[in-house]
């Protein structure tokens, strides 16, 4: 049994290729999640602002991203837009771009929710103590908003990581794509190859996502006490 499993991973560059695939998955996830959080905060603050123009246009953007399947967006950017504008975007660039567009919209909505659910009175009471605007943000608003944001952000992060295999469709060799190729090549010599490879991939996704959700639960519990 173990031999059969090991043989799959030992064969040729299988293990190295799977690791490269994991690298691609991690690169897209990490970059897109980081960019989404970074861009989502100001976008969310704009969505919560008084500017009607900002609010309406960002709402439109959010709704557009929400109704559009990720696959359609990937195709749109990879095949259509790059042809149309005659720019050559690599599959990697398109993937990060599309995932960031999606993540930013969702993150913006989360930030908007967290900020608007904080009552105006929290601002007032902080200011009434003599705290400056920056101090109120720092000591009063952000700690509370962060606590409200956390579950949503964790959920979004794991959702984004779990959605990365879609890049397969624009021929980016992520973990999933490489796994499938490995199974195809080794499959006729080792009938259990698919079990080992997909089992391995399952484990990797678990190892990435599970600690994130544990961490989030820990923080939530700590903040609750």
């Amino acid at each position: 049994m173990l031999d059969s499993a090991l043989s799959v991973f030992r064969m040729g560059r299988n293990m190295a290729r799977l690791m490269e695939g994991l690298g691609v998955t991690l690169e897209i996830s990490l970059l897109a999640v980081a960019l989404s959080i970074l861009l989502g905060v100001p976008i969310g603050l704009l969505m919560a602002s008084r500017s009607l123009l900002a609010k309406r246009s960002l709402r439109l953007y959010l709704e557009f991203i929400r109704v559009m399947p990720i696959l359609v967006l990937l195709f749109l950017f990879y095949y259509t837009i790059s042809k149309f504008w005659n720019v050559n975007l690599s599959a990697m660039t398109v993937s990060i771009l599309v995932f960031t567009l999606w993540g930013t919209a969702e993150m913006g909505d989360l930030v908007r929710g967290a900020v608007t659910s904080l009552s105006r009175h929290q601002w007032d009471s902080g200011r009434a103590l003599g705290l400056s605007e920056t101090q109120v943000s720092f000591y009063v608003v952000i700690p509370q908003a962060a606590r409200r944001l956390l579950p949503g952000v964790i959920n979004l992060t794991t959702r984004m990581i779990k959605t990365t295999p879609f890049v397969y469709f624009i021929n980016l060799p992520d973990l999933m794509k490489v796994g499938q190729q490995v199974v195809e090549v080794s499959g006729f010599r080792n009938p259990l190859a698919s079990v080992w490879v997909y089992g391995f991939i399952f484990l990797i996704y678990f190892v990435i996502c599970y600690p994130i959700s544990v961490l989030s639960r820990r923080l939530e519990r700590r903040w609750h006490n």
Partner: peptide, 14 residues
Amino acid sequence: RQRVGMVFQNYELC
């Protein structure tokens, strides 16, 4: 505001 204390209806503690 350090010299003018204010207390609100809804406490507004952090």
